[in-house]
Design a binder for these strands. Structure first.
Length: 408
RNA sequence: CGGAGUGUAGCUCAGUUGGCUAGAGCGUCUGGUUUGGGACCAGAAGGCCGAAGGUUCAAGUCCUUUCACUCCGACCA
């Protein structure tokens, strides 16, 4: 991608009323734009990062036999009346011309449960797991923390269906393991802590995945030896002890919940009379689990964890581009040499952002490159061309490396 | 929905006890000089001062209403 054709521009200053680092850098770098409180446009660079995050999530979920679907965002209100959730206050309502009431999807139990019901009748049809990437709508009382709490946001949600609770528990553990791998690949593994949280009616606890960051909205208590944490909301229920080792040596941290896993038992399947027939011909309620992972929020969390005073430092796995080719060339012959290098990299299948903008000084280009945060920077200039090299630098710092043009 | 704060140029902000023909920096456009860390010089364009009422000879400035945004609560992925 030639940077000269990119329609977004970087900003020198952050919008005055954005406080959170994720919002400041994502807006300044041209990854997102705020339309109004809690509602953001995702711009070309942001789309690249988001799609890389989703690619990783998709790969790991497919490994545990989950199947991708894409469910509607418009839901008939009747489904919520069946589950008794038509009164919850985060729902956005709208209606059709004939007055039929609709809900803008805030979650998809009310859609996915009757969907699977159409295909699952027998124990032979279980277990099943489906997931999607969706825009969720939640009428938050207050949007805040940049893209971390929006009224419209992207989320991966997954639902699994089982014969028994023990099979659901087995899958729950598989999802936990898949999430661990996802967070490792997103360079959030270190900072992301499995956290005990309130479980609702059907299990003692649910589990959240909390990324430790000062801009987080949740307070968790971290047990260093187990690397698990307890959400403040249930500290009283666990008597202030780590549920795994009983330790009381817990450290208070601010964190942002980027994912959760939840046992639903027959909470939703009962509402739709969703049963399966076992070997003896008896009917049983299908047992469900649900597993959320906030894609937009994860994007924000990664920026919160990986930045310095100059800008974002993307992990390689999700960087918008594999490399930032920064040209400082002005003379025609040099510019042509830089162009040629860019075309060579593209021909090699490398996804490169090429700063070919004319008339900018080196300082401006470097500052933009720091802000955008592509981990590898390749500088081509009259100086390097005179030696038949390019200069390669890591965004994270360290000494430059000079690579011969013939080696590229 | 309670508390606090902010709305002035594309962006960040000045604007004193009401006197404004509304400013600066950045960005944009023209020309010139520069060219490895947001450089410099000269010029130009760009504003219904969030919106609606009101007070006044006079309102960006005071009053009322309203809308929006940010932060702190409550609530929530």
């Amino acid at each position: 991608m030639r940077q000269s054709i990119l329609f977004t521009k970087t900003l020198k200053e952050a919008p005055k009323d954005e406080v959170s680092k994720n919002a400041q850098f994502l807006i300044r770098g041209g990854f997102v734009d705020k339309l109004f409180a809690g509602v953001y446009s995702i711009l070309p660079l942001g789309v690249k990062v988001l799609s890389h995050i989703e690619h990783i999530v998709r790969e790991e979920l497919c490994r545990i036999d989950a199947q991708e679907v894409f469910l509607p965002a418009l839901h008939p209100v009747e489904n919520y009346q069946k589950t008794g959730r038509d009164g919850i206050d985060v729902l956005f309502f709208t209606e059709m011309h004939d007055g039929k009431r609709l809900v803008l999807g805030q979650s998809h139990e009310e859609v996915v449960t009757p969907l699977l019901q159409k295909y699952v009748q027998s124990y032979k049809d279980l277990p099943k797991s489906v997931f999607q990437f969706q825009t969720k709508f939640r009428n938050e009382l207050r949007a805040k923390s940049g893209i971390m709490r929006g009224r419209e946001f992207r989320m991966k949600d997954m639902y699994s269906f089982h014969e028994t609770q023990s099979d659901a528990d087995r899958y729950y553990a598989l999802v936990e393991d898949a999430y661990r791998k996802i967070f490792d690949r997103l360079a959030l593994g270190e900072a992301t802590i499995k956290t005990y949280a309130s479980g609702g009616t059907f299990s003692k606890y649910s589990h959240e995945f909390q990324t430790i960051t000062s801009s987080g909205e949740d307070t968790i208590y971290l047990c260093e030896s187990c690397r698990v944490a307890i959400n403040k909301e249930i500290m009283a229920d666990v008597n202030g002890q780590c549920p795994e080792c009983g330790s009381r040596a817990l450290e208070e941290k601010k964190a942002i919940e980027i994912a959760n896993i939840f046992k639903l038992a027959d909470r939703f399947t009962n509402a739709f009379s969703f049963t399966y027939t076992d070997q003896e011909g008896k009917k049983h309620p299908v047992i469900m689990g649900c597993y959320g992972l906030g894609i937009t929020r994860t994007l924000g969390a990664i920026v919160e964890v990986h930045h310095d005073e100059k800008g974002i430092i993307w992990p390689e796995s999700i960087a918008p581009y594999a490399a930032h080719l920064v040209s400082l060339c002005t003379e025609r012959a040099d510019v042509e040499a830089a162009d040629e290098l860019y075309h060579r990299l593209v021909a090699q299948g490398k996804d490169v952002l090429y700063d070919d903008r004319a008339g900018l000084r080196a300082g401006e280009k470097f500052a933009d490159s720091d802000l955008i945060g592509i981990p590898k920077r390749v500088i081509v200039s009259p100086k390097t061309l005179a030696n038949n090299t390019v200069e390669v630098r890591q965004r994270s710092g360290g000494e430059p490396e000079y690579v011969s043009l013939s080696a590229i």
